[in-house]
Design a protein around this nucleic acid. Structure first.
Lengths: 131, 131
DNA sequence: GTATATGCAAACAATTTGCACGCCT
DNA sequence: AGGCGTGCAAATTGTTTGCATATAC
C-alpha cells in the first residue's frame, strides 16, 4: 500500500515560498492571505497551488492546520503550543506550554494519543484594554 | 445597540425537534445528519431551517459547535467536557472532565476566558482493538 | 525522460440568504 | 396585527480537481 508519505516530492519554489511565509508570521493566516503574500514573490502563482502545497506541508508535519469556523488557518510553528481566540478581534494568539500547567490525560489505555489541541476562547489583552 | 440575544425568539416546533435530536445522541452529528433525522418528524422541513436553528441554539448557549475539518458538528451536551477524534474511524467521542486532570491556565490577567476546548486526536479503543 | 507540480478554470460541498407566505405571541 | 420563522431555490464561500503544459530530478 502506498502511503502519501511514500510519494516522492519535488522541492518546488512555490512550496518553499509558502513555508517561508508561514514561518515568518504568527497570525495563523488563511489560505487566501498566504496566497496574497505569495503573489508578491510569484505573481502568477495560483490559489490551487497554495491549497495543494498547504496539504502537502501538513502531511509532512511541517505545518499545522487550525480549524476556525468555516475557514482553515495555518501555523508554521509545530512545537507544542496552544491557541487563544479572541471573540472580539478574531485574532488567534499563541499560548505557550507553560501557560497551561498540570495537563494530564487519564484516558483508557486502549486509546492512543497523537496530539492534543487546546483552543481557549475569550477576550484578548488588547480588546479588554480598549473596552 | 441590539445584540442577537435581544431578539425575541418564538418557540417553533422545528427548533424543538432539532434540539431534541441533538440531546438524544452523542455522535456529534453534522447538520445534514440532523436534517435527515428531523425529516422523520417533519417531512418537509428544509435544510436552511436546520442551519438557521442550529445557529440560534448556539447563540442561546443550548448547543455547542465543533469544528471538525470542513464540516461543523454539533453537540447537545453543554456541561464541561472534551472531545477525542479517532483518525481511523472519524468518530468524535466525549472525554469526561475527570479524564483531563490538573488543567490550569496561567494567562496574563488582561485576558478573559470564556471557554476551553480540548480536542485529542488519536486512535480509539475500537480501532486499536481491531488492528 | 518521466513523473510530479503548476496555472487556469470549472466543479464541488457546506452553508447562507432573498423572497413570499405562514404561524407564534 | 405584526414580525419572526419557514420552505424553497438560488447565491455565496472555501476548497478541490481535471487538464494541458512546465519543471525537478
Amino acid at each position: 500500500m502506498l502511503k502519501s508519505n511514500d510519494i516522492k516530492r519535488r522541492n518546488t519554489y512555490q512550496r518553499k515560498i509558502i513555508l517561508d511565509i508561514l514561518r515568518d508570521t504568527d497570525i495563523h493566516p488563511t489560505a487566501d492571505w498566504i496566497y496574497e503574500q505569495a503573489r508578491k514573490k510569484i505573481p502568477n502563482i495560483s490559489l490551487g497551488t497554495v491549497y495543494r502545497n498547504l496539504k502537502i506541508l501538513k502531511e509532512n508535519g511541517q505545518i499545522i492546520e487550525i480549524n476556525d469556523g468555516k475557514q482553515s488557518r495555518f501555523d508554521g510553528r509545530i512545537d507544542e503550543h496552544y491557541h487563544f481566540k479572541c471573540v472580539s478581534c478574531d485574532r488567534i494568539i499563541d499560548v505557550e506550554r507553560d501557560e497551561v500547567v498540570g495537563l494530564k490525560l487519564k484516558l483508557d489505555k486502549s486509546y492512543s494519543v497523537d496530539r492534543v489541541d487546546i483552543l481557549i476562547t475569550g477576550v484578548c489583552n488588547i480588546c479588554n484594554g480598549e473596552n
